[in-house]
Amino acid sequence: MKPSMPQRASPSSMPPAKAGTARQKGALPWLGRMFMGLWYLAGLGAAWIIISNFDADVFKRYGPRMLSGLLVTTQLVVLPLVMGAVIGLGLALMRLSGQRWLSLPANVYMTFFRGTPLLAQVFLIYYGAGQLRPWLQDVGLWGFFREAWYCVLLAFTLNTAAYQAEIYRVAIASVPKGQWEAADALGLPRRITFVRIILPQALITALRPLGNEVILMIKASAIASVVTILDLMGVTRLAFARTFDFSVYLWAAVLYLIIVETLRRLWTRLEARLTRHLGQQARAGKG
């Protein structure tokens, strides 16, 4: 049995906040003010660290590099996501084929890549390729595996493919059987049924988990810095190692937060736009 996410229930299920006694009414606002106060303090503290440590030289040297690191991070997210989508869709179809010789390998692949840490996968591919060097040179692939960059791209692609495969599998399986049957009754071939009727509906269901996957990939891309890639995280670590200036980590944190939050909001918009024909019920979930 796989653990499954709990179903989101109807929105009318919040506990009655009004039922609170007078005593709790007195304590809660006080607690709320205290915690917000702590956040204001933390924000001021972070701002103070950033401002008091501000060094024009460091900023001039590492500011542009951080921006180019941001570009590297973008590539580390976009390329694997796109390539992983193709492989993932293939894997999902293998899983759903009902043929054991197709679904078993896909299942093993997905279990492996979803059950082991991404960092271990990166190490296995990057350092493992070094051990296979003579053989890779014979096959003519050494030029590819010699570069940490390509190894990381490969590891990220294989990893997200496994996660995306699970998303597509669930989404495709969730399209009601009647859709297949109706298309069949209309005389549509199975391929056309899948591409034009099933897949569009499945992708709508897959939108939210895919958005989560994009965000998880942005966060996971920081792992590339461990094998010397100068993405945003890599530049940050380099700058810290050379300057011992802690504020570079805070700069990086701010940048990551801005990216993730912006993307999350854009994705919510996109989702609302793509599901606007489904009316209220599809948008009942949280925004």
């Binding site: 919040m14 506990p15 906040a17 609170g20 809660l28 606002p29 607690l31 709320g32 003010r33 915690f35 917000m36 702590l38 956040w39 965000i215 942005i218 966060k219 996971a220 891309s221 920081a222 792992i223 810095s225 461990v226 995280m233 940050t236 980590y249 990086a252 944190a253 990551y256 937060l257 993730v260 939050e261």
Partner: peptide
Amino acid sequence: ISGERNLMRAARIYTTIFRGLPELL
């Protein structure tokens, strides 16, 4: 779920930060 505005805001800030930062960072 407390219904107290400041408490909810403080919790939202917390989850936004720690769900948005890369674990490594």
